[in-house]
Simulated scan of single mutants.
Amino acid sequence: MSEPRALFQLGIDLNRDSRKTQAEVLEFPHHAADLANVETLSEGPRPHAEERKDFFIERDGVRFAGTHLIIDLIGASRLDDLAHIEETLVRCVEVSKATLLHIHLHHFTPNGGVSGVAVLSESHISIHTWPEADYAALDVFMCGEAEPQNSIAVLQEAFGPSNIRVEELRRGQGMV
């Protein structure tokens, strides 16, 4: 693979100063208690203190992998404000009782749109904004005991949309 292609895959644009258009990946520290049951290749398998949890969800007698919210924000503001978007994603993770691993955001020019993802232990929250159209598309997918529906109020407060459309999918229903 050529060096420019490899750098592009890492999010580095060689044709412009990418420091102006790309946020850094933010790594959050892990607590030792969170890693108690994690196996690494160097350690190999080890006995777990408690039985393995699969983090599947059971609701209304139906078992599924996770809740996936497809969210459209219409008539929204501050969709080009990188720091505000990052803070909002962090708040969404907190109120959803999820575990943030890292956030990666990219700021596009000239329209100022933002694409990014908050990677979670429970899955992810992704965002893509079109500030010129006052529109944002988000995916909030979480498994386990996380509460992704709690993120909707945070998005309402943060971006003040005139309309929010939410579709809820139960991923993996009938498969797990």
Rank of each mutant, 00 (worst) to 15 (best):
R165E: 12
V38I: 12
V166P: 04
V117F: 13
Q149E: 15
F108M: 06
S162K: 11
S18T: 15
R165L: 12
F8K: 14
I125E: 12
L79K: 02
T21M: 04
A32C: 08
A137G: 10
K97Q: 12
A98G: 12
K53L: 13
D134M: 08
V90Q: 14
S162N: 09
L89K: 13
V25H: 03
V25G: 00
V95C: 10
V166Q: 04
E132H: 13
M175I: 15
I71T: 11
M1C: 08
P4S: 13
L41K: 03
I85R: 00
V95I: 11
S121F: 15
G66Q: 01
A158M: 07
D54F: 13
G75S: 09
M175P: 02
H102Q: 05
I71H: 06
L10I: 05
V140K: 02
H104F: 05
H107K: 11
R5N: 07
E94S: 14
A49F: 09
V38Y: 07
G174T: 04
D54Q: 13
R52D: 07
Y135G: 09
V114E: 04
Q22I: 14
F64C: 03
A136I: 08
A83W: 02
G160V: 02
F28M: 09
T99P: 01
A76N: 01
F8N: 04
G75Y: 04
E132T: 12
H104C: 06
V117A: 12
E43Q: 13
H104I: 09
D134A: 14
L35A: 06
A153H: 10
L82Q: 13
L101Y: 08
